[in-house]
């Protein structure tokens, strides 16, 4: 009467040694193998913000995967693209689950990249604060303006219009707000416990 699936095929990942660095992130108490929608969405958006911060960001993601010995999980460009396309907002969204292990690897990379960009992130957030207080449009500042512009371009070209419409993310102002919010989150990723904090926050409201 036990009609459960056989569990023998579940852990094909165990054949590859799991990199030590991922052990610092605990497994969330969620049912199923894949990450919740929110997790997939947030990770992809944070990576998008990094790409807007740094030219050649996507190249850097793959390089870091090599450096951190994560190439067993993030194998190549196509593989990375497929993981990111699990973001439900994507134009090219594919109904492929993002495994916990893949999510961990991406989070580690987000945090390492953010750490490398700490100075830029801090400066831009300070500039944003100053411009905001003086009511000066953000485009006035070259650096901040560039970031927002690039983020908007990436976001509009890669996300599904209908789906971002549902989240009321169609106007340029809203996309700018999102970009700045992500910048703040990236700053928090740079901290001593940033990786753990980000990881845990991705499952807030999702655990059972």
């Amino acid at each position: 009467m036990n009609v459960s699936a056989s569990a023998t095929t579940l852990n094909n990942s165990t054949s590859v040694a799991i990199p030590m660095i991922l052990d610092t992130l605990p497994d969330p108490a969620i049912a199923g193998q894949g990450c919740p929608r929110k997790t997939r969405l947030q990770i992809d958006l944070l990576l998008l913000a990094i790409e807007a911060l740094e030219l050649g960001g996507s190249e850097a993601i793959l390089n870091f995967a090599q450096e951190l010995d994560l190439q067993g999980i993030i194998k190549n460009r196509v593989n990375l693209w497929r993981m990111r396309s699990s973001n439900p907002l994507r134009r090219a969204h594919i109904r492929r689950p993002l495994t916990i292990l893949e999510a961990k690897a991406l989070v580690v990379i987000v945090c390492y990249l953010a750490r490398r960009l700490t100075v830029a992130i801090r400066q831009m957030l300070s500039i944003y604060q100053q411009l905001y207080e003086k009511q000066i449009p953000f485009e006035q500042n070259l650096r901040l303006g560039n970031y927002l512009e690039r983020f908007k371009t990436h976001f509009k070209s890669r996300m599904n219009n209908r789906r971002i419409g549902l989240l009321a993310l169609t106007s340029d102002e809203r996309i700018d707000e999102l970009a700045l919010e992500l910048l703040g989150k990236l700053l928090f990723c740079t901290g001593t416990a940033g990786m753990q904090r980000l990881w845990i926050s991705l499952f807030d409201g999702e655990v059972e």
Partner: peptide
């Protein structure tokens, strides 16, 4: 967080993070 990470200062207080319940 640096305080939390410092095991020589009030070691009984450490960072414990858990995702919040649905």
């Amino acid at each position: 967080d640096q305080f939390f990470a410092d095991s020589q200062t009030l070691p009984e207080l450490s960072l414990e993070l858990q995702p919040i319940n649905a």
